[in-house]
Structure formats: C-alpha cells, structure tokens
C-alpha cells in the first residue's frame, strides 16, 4: 500500500514535471528466458553472486529452446537467449528483434551422440534420431546430414524436446540424440559417443541475447544492467573458476570438473570480441548471418525471401 502510494506520488510528480513514461512495463522487471545451456550459465552465476539486479531483471528458465521461442514470440518474455539460427527464424516470422549480446560460440558443445555401434554419421541410416522441434536441432541435424551427403529421408526422426532426450536414450527409445551440454556430458558418462560436433561447423552456432525492438528502444537501463552483469559474471568465472564451476554444477546437475570440461566446447567472447562481432563498420556477425541464412534456406528451414534486416546492436557493450 505504502509502495503504491509512493509510486502514485512519484507518477504525479513526474506527470507534473511533464516527464512522461511511468508505465507498468518499466516497473516490471525485464524477463529474460533461457533454456539449460552452459553458455547461458554465467547469467545464473551472476544472480548467485549478486551481480544481477533482481528488481530490473527476472531470469525465466524453460525446459527447451522451443518454449523460450514460444514465450518470446507471445511476448511472455521481453528478452531471450537463443542461437543465431533461431533468431533468424524469428525475424523471418516478422518478429522485430535486436541482438544485443553474444553469449558464446559453440565449438564442440553442441553434438550428435550415438549408441555404441553407431561409429560415424555413415552408420546413422534408418536409426531413430531424437531432435528438438525448435530451430537449433533441425539446423544441427540438417548440417550434419548435409556434410555427410545424407538427407532427412535417410533417418527416422523423433521430435522430442531436449529435456526428454536423455530419458528417451536411457529407455532405448532412440539411438541417436541431437543435443548439447550439459546433456552431452551426462550421456557421454552413460556410454554414448559423439559422431558429429559443432566443431565441424565452427562459427555457425552462436548463442546471442535478443530483445523485442520496442524493448530495445524503451528499456535501455535494464538491458544495460543485464549486459553489465553478464560481463561481471564472465570476469568472476575467469578468476574464480573452481568456485564458479561448483555453483554452476548444482544447476547443471554435473560435477564441477565436468562443468569446466563442458566449457571447453565453448568460446565466451569478451567485451572486445563482442564489440567487433556486433558493432563497427562491418560487424563480423553479419557474415555469419549471411552464411546461416543461406544454410537455412538450402535446408528449407526458412522459406521467406525477405532480406534479414539490420538486427545487430553493440550499444550496450562497454569497450
């Protein structure tokens, strides 16, 4: 009651001084949706170590990227952490967004795992493959098949959300899973092995943070603090790796050592790299986008011919 009264008074004062904009959306915390992925873990690390201002940012966890995309598309989220290919598909669906941060570049953390006996991609014929219905799974499998001169018709696709893959594998419902850390480590521990990793398509799987375009315009303060928190957490992670790993291990349900091992498959660009990827005369991520767009089109993942608009923004990267 007192807080509301104070807020009304504040609104009145602001209205009186003709500074408009005391709307609910600015009082609501900015909701950032993520799925479980080591590349996003520094966000949660930031929350654990008190670097994330809770009144400005609310982290929302989803079981899979598909749910993140749905919620972001339905505007149940203001911001989301997604792979760049997923972002391109949102853009193709006419959802205006801006990319404001590069979380990581997958260099082995995304993977296709197979049961013993399936030794390579060539052994994948007619095998049951668990693929997430969202973009990234489709992208991974499409690229893996393409690079090995195979097609979707050659395999038996099972649409399963990533959180169901592990169970399906253990229940022997599928033979191959298209997945990523931390499921990768857990399944490797269960005897599965890799037949394809993102190392082979280095630079194509990039995790970024996106916000709705109007949010980008109106919530600069919250976006700024989330980006700041991200780099604070990275700095913490780099200087206190063991402590950070043990914090992350609890959430990822793997051991701290495995967390550190899992990060081996990831590149975490610092502010300098972020700024070259997102900003400058010619952001380097533009090349990646162009290549991705071509791949997505060739694989029928996007059909629209609308050119990709300028979505990269380096405003929030301190350099």
């Amino acid at each position: 009651m007192l807080k509301t009264a104070y807020r009304s008074l504040l609104c009145l004062v602001l209205a009186a001084t003709a500074i408009s904009g005391c709307s609910e959306s600015e009082i609501q915390p900015l909701r950032l949706g993520t799925n479980v992925w080591p590349g996003y873990e520094p966000l949660y690390l930031a929350r654990e170590i008190g670097e994330l201002p809770g009144e400005k940012i609310k982290l929302v966890e989803y079981p899979s990227a598909s749910e993140v995309i749905r919620a972001f598309r339905n505007r149940a989220l203001e911001a989301a952490s997604l792979t760049l290919d997923e972002v391109l598909m949102l853009v193709q669906d006419d959802i205006p967004v801006k990319v404001i941060l590069v979380h990581d570049i997958s260099n082995g953390a995304d993977t296709i795992l197979a049961r013993p006996g399936i030794e390579s991609m060539q052994d994948i014929h007619n095998k049951r493959v668990a693929v997430e219905s969202s973009a990234l799974g489709a992208f991974m499998i499409s690229r893996a098949l393409e690079l090995n001169a195979l097609s979707v018709a050659d395999i038996d696709i099972r649409h399963l959300e990533v959180n169901a893959h592990e169970q399906a594998y253990l229940n022997n419902e599928v033979d191959v899973v298209v997945n990523f850390e931390p499921v990768r480590t857990r399944l490797l521990n269960q005897g599965a092995h890799e037949i394809f990793t993102s190392r082979e398509i280095y630079g194509e799987i990039v995790d970024v943070m996106v916000v709705h375009e109007d949010i980008y315009e109106n919530r600069k303060d919250a976006i700024g603090s989330i980006v700041k928190s991200w780099f604070s957490a990275l700095a913490y992670f780099n200087s206190n790796q063991n402590k950070a790993a043990s914090i992350m291990a609890k959430r990822l349900n793997v051991s701290p050592d495995e967390v550190i091992a899992g990060f081996d498959g990831l590149e975490l660009p610092d502010e300098q790299q972020n700024s070259t990827m997102l900003g400058g005369e010619k952001p380097s991520l533009e090349l990646t986008i162009a290549r991705l767009e071509k791949v997505l089109k060739e694989n029928g993942l996007i059909s629209n011919d609308t050119p990709i608009p300028d979505i990269l923004r380096a405003d929030f990267i301190q350099n």
């Binding site: 009304s8 008074l9 609104c11 009145l12 209205a15 005391c22 709307s23 609910e24 959306s25 609501q28 749905r70 919620a71 339905n74 505007r75 149940a76």
Partner: peptide, 29 residues
C-alpha cells in the same frame, strides 16, 4: 492528483492485464 493517479492506475491495470493475457495465451498455446 486523484484524477491523474486514477488515469495512471487504469493505465497500469491495462498494462498488467496485457501481460497477464499474454502469459495465459502462451500457456494455452
């Protein structure tokens, strides 16, 4: 102050309801 606050609080109600409907629809979908 009362008039201004009332119009502001109606605005807040509208925005709150927006958010709530979006969440419900997201959930239903």
């Amino acid at each position: 102050a009362y008039t201004a606050s009332r119009s502001l609080s109606y605005q807040h109600v509208d925005e709150d309801t927006h958010t709530s409907i979006r969440n419900k629809l997201n959930y239903l979908q």
